[in-house]
Amino acid sequence: MNIFRLAGDMTHLASVLVLLLKIHTIKSCAGVSLKTQELYALVFATRYLDIVTDFISVYNTVMKLIFLGSSFSIVWYIRHHRVVRRSYDKDQDTFRHYLLMIPCMLLALFVHEKFTFKEVMWTFSLYLEAVAILPQLVLLQRTRNIDNLTGQYVFLLGAYRGLYIFNWIYRYFTEPHFVHWITWIAGVVQTLLYADFFYYYFESWKNNVRLQLPA
């Protein structure tokens, strides 16, 4: 494990904690896309099928359980919590999941490293994770006032993806045969989706004004 990978995982963990903090303590999910959260729950459920078949490390298993548990509990909070669900911007969060899920599944069925159930599911999770942030970005664009926690959540998620790219570059030069085109292309696409958000995030930070994305 290199420093980029560890920093990436910690940033990912921080993003989830920020979101849980907002939902759990402020009892609000305003500005948070349920569609994106449901896609992440599906991403982790399909990617971590190996949690029961392969043991990699205690770190790996614990982190997988955290991401699975947090993503499903966030979905539960937004859909069912008596107070939290009232703050959900249902009318703004209109992105249709299947428009992302179906193309990702078709792509995974045709473009994968091995044609086995676990491998196709794993590849599907990579493709789906790459685009899962889109409903959230669309919702941010529609939200006039993005609160700090929601902005930080998306920023941390984007930072996590960026750090994973540095991790792959590092691994490519330090580990023999570390070539994973599918992972890399999906990861780069995912990071590029944040480019626009990052630009406005840093602008608002530099000028000390509230974050707002142009419609």
Partner: peptide
């Protein structure tokens, strides 16, 4: 590293 090395990532 074997061909599953990337699977140690999250």
């Amino acid at each position: 590293a074997d061909d599953n090395d990337v699977k140690d990532e999250l």
